[in-house]
Each structure stands twice: as structure tokens, then as C-alpha cells.
Design a protein around this nucleic acid. Structure first.
Lengths: 326, 326
DNA sequence: CGCGTTTACGTCGTTCGTAACGATA
DNA sequence: TATCGTTACGAACGACGTAAACGCG
């Protein structure tokens, strides 16, 4: 049993049991992986995969169990490498940041720019992902940092650090009836209108959808997209009333009317989520401190060491942060 | 970075930084370890040990941190091997059981005999150890199972499973004044007499010692030993009044008078302690079920998987167990 | 017939043990 | 001088990539 064998094993499991694909991902050849897996199976004394003909069909039950431990070992090995890179002052590396489009487009740029400025040799990879997949991909390994939003609840996996609070806004095209007034429309008023919002609003867990359901109102989703810019475009085109995060409206959007969202829509919190107990590279920590300057450094260290999370302070509202910056 | 390098590294750390000794323990040669450590240091980019001349003087700070992760990796590797051995129905192996002399001599024999009967090819190693060192050696790796006693408190490290409750007894030689009556002496009465008891009674955490201190009474320890048989021998020799665990008196001790201990001495609980989250071999689980037949199997599985401990049922009293057996 | 896995073969790198050397108390 | 760590050397093993064969859809 070698670390390489376990690495190959995990890669195959992560590549849909396609050895050829896994071989590319680990920068090795396919026969090499096949052989190492066979050797590992020989050493352990049982099959890790069920096979049909020559191709892999599934992990065996025992293989699943081995995989759990193998992943932990690989994570620990990664920790040692990260530790070593920090120790010797290595300033280059890769930082994978998995997040949603709105965060990437409107929230993260300043923090990422500052981090890149401090670590010019670091390659930062923005990995857009669905909210649902983000947490899974974090624990699965590989990704170091996620930035996601919830309506209040603390994310389940990993170590979650609250960054800021934000609310939704209602966006209407110039000339729309709602645009003539300043006050927030009610949920009932919105219920009568076609809406344009995020793809995630279709999900059962969506706080937008739950708010309508909780009020016993129907929600007409005329259109959804992952991308706030697309939503704005289609609001301009008259497809409906836009509902999106306040971070996504900029002063440049002069042709759109911005109204507060109904108070029935709950406030949201954007979190940074880190894998539990993983050693972070210096530049990851730097990015984290850019994103959450209000968090106490020693609290941060303690929580990263794997101790229980403290009661985080209530994070600032996005509005206030934004005013301060401008 | 290979598993062997990490294994050598941990072995050196566990051998007092003596590479030659570590080499013997891992069944390799000393130059081999020296080279592998050097290579590991080269790869990581910093020293794991501080050196004075050619000999190792200490772990570096970075080395300490690497060691933590290295141990976790080695533990996980051990888990995979244990998993594999169980999976293929391997019936031989080694089971290291670290415990105190009294448990080994009077409590464990039946359970160990039953386990050996079911797994004749398993080599069971009884490793006597001080109460204080037991928990440390568990987390350090290697040892799979500990059996220890506390006066009520749940042991701090690992997963603790309560086995039974027991009380102390007072033992006096034939002809001793205390022997003429049946009722328990008081703490105050004992305070006036020279006592013979366990070595651990000298420790500040000892519940015996704390009982005397709590009552504002002095405790005269005429003699202490690790071994209940020695204590009995010296009680017979008239050195003083013996205080030991009820498990340690047998019907064969006809020349000694057995009295209940003062009620001021608290009841104790014997626990089986397992390393957190480690995969156990089938025979270890078997021994555990011999020791704790009252524990629900699914509770046991759940707790071993690393989930939170349930509220264990109050374990049976030793007296009742013993009666049932006889 | 194409895709993906297995088998065969040759090369290269690495590990390991033995033995000699060096330093230290 | 004894003990412990380092360096040197040679042998054996193991891993890897290339290329060809094999099954399956």
C-alpha cells in the first residue's frame, strides 16, 4: 500500500470509474493505474471494484470503506505538503475557490485582487458551482475554500465563517408600474408578476421559494439564470421583475429601478467555508482575512485547529461595508 | 514523501530520537532510516530534527507539526489494513491490551480465554501500565484496547465503554482487631492504622487519597505495590490494613478477613477505552463483547464509527456479575 | 470498428543492506 | 574506545511508459 496507489484509487473513484480519465488527471498513464490498483487489491486481499467484463462498474462495499480512509490519508499528506510550503516561505501555489457567480462577480474581486497583489505567483482558480454541490466538493478534497450564502442557517459541512449579511432587491425595467414608487412591494404583489431570478430559486430549499410557500402564495418564475448579469439583461428586456442579491446592483445600472425586497424575504448571510482541520496555505489565510477582517485572528486559528467554533459575532451588513469602501 | 518515510519518522520520535533503536523496531537498518529521513527533509525543505554534531537533539517546531499529521496517516493506513484483514476473514493477528495488574489478574482472564478460544491464532499481549500512561499510549497509536478504572469520571481520551461498578474492600490479617466485627470501618478508624494499598494511591488524583483529604484525615501508607497479590502478602505479614479492589479477593483467601470499605470511599467504574475512530479487528470486537455483554451492539458500532457517545446504561456491579458466574 | 482495459517488455529510478568511515562522549 | 550517525557501493526490486492484444458495445 503506497500513497500513489491510494491517490490513483481516489482518482478513479472521482472520475466515474474511468481509469483512462483518472490517469490523465493524475498525470500518469492508464496501464500504470490499472496495475497499481491490481497490486493494491492483491495486497488487501479483496476487490475494490466490481467489474463487468474489463470495465469497472462500481466500488465494492469494502472498497467504499477503504476509500474513506484513503481520502483521509491523502488529505493529511496534503496538509503536510501545505505545512512544508508555508514553512519554507513558498509564495507560489494554487488556490481553488468554489463559489456562486454573484459572489465571484460582485463580492470577491477586491479581496482576490489584494491577495494576488500580496502573492503575485499564486494562481487563483474560481470554480463556479451550484450551492448544493459546493459543500460536497469541499469535503471530497481538493478545494480549499468555498464562499456561499444561506438564509441564516450555518452551513453543515466544514468550518463556516460568517462574512456579511445581505438582502434581496427587486429590480424593474424603466417604465414598469412598480418603478413609480419607492417602498418595497409585498410578497402578494410580487406573486402576481412574472419573476426573473437565480436558478437556485427553483430548488426546494430556496429561501425565496420558501417565503412564497410560507405565505401560501404562488411564485411565477418567468426565467432563471445562474448569472446576475443575465437576470438584469432579461429584466431590461421586459421579461419580468428581477429579484436578486443587493450586491449585484451597481450604480451603473441607471436604467433599472431598484426597490427593497419584501420584508417577508429573510436576510441572508454569506459564509466562507473551509474544510475541517485542513492546513491552509498562507495565501488562503490571507484571502480569508481580506474577506473577514472583522474576525479575530486567534478565534480563526482556534477554529482552524479543529476546535469547536466560537459564537461568531453578527457579521456586518453588506450595505455598510459597501458604503465604507466607496 | 512515502508512508515508509513517515513510519520511520514516527519510530524515531517514539524511540527517544535514537535512530539505531528505531531501526530495530521497524525491522530495518540504521543507514536506511538515516537516508529516508534526509530525503524527507530534502523534499519538505526544512529540518525535522535539530542536530548537535551528528546526533538528533529534538524535533523542530515544524517537525512536531508534521509528526501530528504523519501519525494520523499511519493510523489510517493501519485502519485500512485492519479493514482488509477483517474483510478477508483473517483470523490471526496481535491484540495489545494495556491495563493494570488487578484487571489483568482478576477481571480479564475469562474474557481473554473466551477470545483466544474463538481465535486461537491471535496473540494477545498484556501490557501492564500505569493508569496515567495508559491513555497517552492509546492515542499514540499501536495499542488497540485499554481497560482502566476511574471513580465515576469518564476517561478523557478515546471512546470509553463502562464495564462494571466495583467497590474497595478492607483486608486484615487473622487476629487483627478489625477482623472481629463485620461492619465497615470508618475513614477515621482507618486513618489511625497503617495501610497497604496500590501504588496509584500515592497519586494526587487517587480517589482513596482524595477521600481522606476530603474528610480532613491523614492517610498512613505503610506500603504500596502495583500488585494485589503483593498487597495481600504484606497484609498477611502484618504490615498493615489492606485496601484493594473487591475483584482482587478470592474465596481462597481464607486466612484474611474481608470487610466492606467505608462508605466514604466512592464506587469505581472499570472502563474499556478504545482509540477514537480506529478500525478494530474482529477479535478485538469479540473481546470487547466478552467484557461488556450488556452493551447494545448497534450502540457499539455507532460509537466506534466516531459518532457521539450515547448515554451508556449504568454498568452492573461486579458482585452481581461474579455471583452469576460462580 | 472504436473505446477502454489488460498484458508484455524494456528502461530507469529507487530502495535497501553491507561495509567502511567519522564524530562524539 | 564504544556508540551512534553518515557516506559509499553494489545488487535487487519496483514503477513507469510504450506498444500491442483483447473484449465489448
Amino acid at each position: 500500500m503506497t500513497l500513489n496507489q491510494l491517490r490513483y484509487f481516489a482518482a478513479i473513484a472521482d472520475s466515474g470509474l474511468n481509469i483512462t480519465l483518472a490517469a490523465e488527471r493524475v498525470h500518469a498513464t492508464q496501464p500504470g493505474l490499472s496495475r497499481q490498483i491490481k497490486q493494491l487489491e492483491d495486497e488487501l486481499g479483496f476487490l475494490l471494484f466490481t467489474r463487468k467484463g474489463r470495465s469497472l462498474t462500481a466500488l465494492t462495499q469494502a472498497g467504499e470503506r477503504v476509500l474513506v480512509h484513503a481520502r483521509r490519508m491523502l488529505d493529511e499528506a496534503g496538509d503536510i505538503r501545505a505545512l512544508a510550503a508555508n514553512q519554507r516561505g513558498e509564495r507560489k501555489g494554487r488556490l481553488t475557490l468554489v463559489t456562486t457567480h454573484t459572489q465571484a462577480r460582485y463580492v470577491l474581486p477586491a479581496a482576490i485582487a489584494a491577495t494576488r497583489h500580496a502573492f503575485p505567483a499564486v494562481s487563483i482558480r474560481l470554480q463556479p458551482s451550484d450551492e448544493a454541490e459546493i459543500l460536497a466538493s469541499l469535503t471530497r478534497g481538493g478545494d480549499e475554500l468555498a464562499v456561499i450564502s444561506t438564509s441564516g442557517a450555518v452551513p453543515g459541512a466544514g468550518v463556516a465563517i460568517p462574512l456579511f449579511r445581505w438582502r434581496r432587491v427587486v429590480l424593474v425595467a424603466a417604465g414598469h408600474a412598480l418603478g413609480r414608487r419607492r417602498r418595497a412591494p409585498t410578497l402578494a404583489e410580487l406573486s402576481a408578476l412574472p419573476l426573473v431570478s437565480y436558478e437556485s430559486s427553483r430548488r426546494a430549499e430556496s429561501s425565496l421559494r420558501r417565503a412564497f410557500e410560507g405565505a401560501g402564495l404562488a411564485m411565477q418564475l418567468a426565467m432563471t439564470a445562474h448569472d446576475a448579469d443575465l437576470i438584469k439583461t432579461y429584466v431590461r428586456a421586459g421579461l419580468g421583475v428581477g429579484i436578486l442579491a443587493e450586491m449585484a446592483v451597481s450604480p451603473a445600472d441607471t436604467d433599472l429601478h431598484v426597490l427593497p425586497a419584501p420584508t417577508a424575504l429573510p436576510e441572508c448571510i454569506t459564509w466562507a467555508v473551509l474544510p475541517q482541520g485542513r492546513v491552509l496555505r498562507d495565501f488562503t489565510l490571507r484571502l480569508l482575512r481580506e474577506l473577514a477582517p472583522q474576525i479575530d485572528a486567534s478565534d480563526l486559528r482556534r477554529v482552524l485547529a479543529g476546535n469547536a467554533a466560537p459564537d461568531w459575532p453578527v457579521p456586518p451588513a453588506w450595505k455598510d461595508l459597501h458604503r465604507a469602501v466607496v
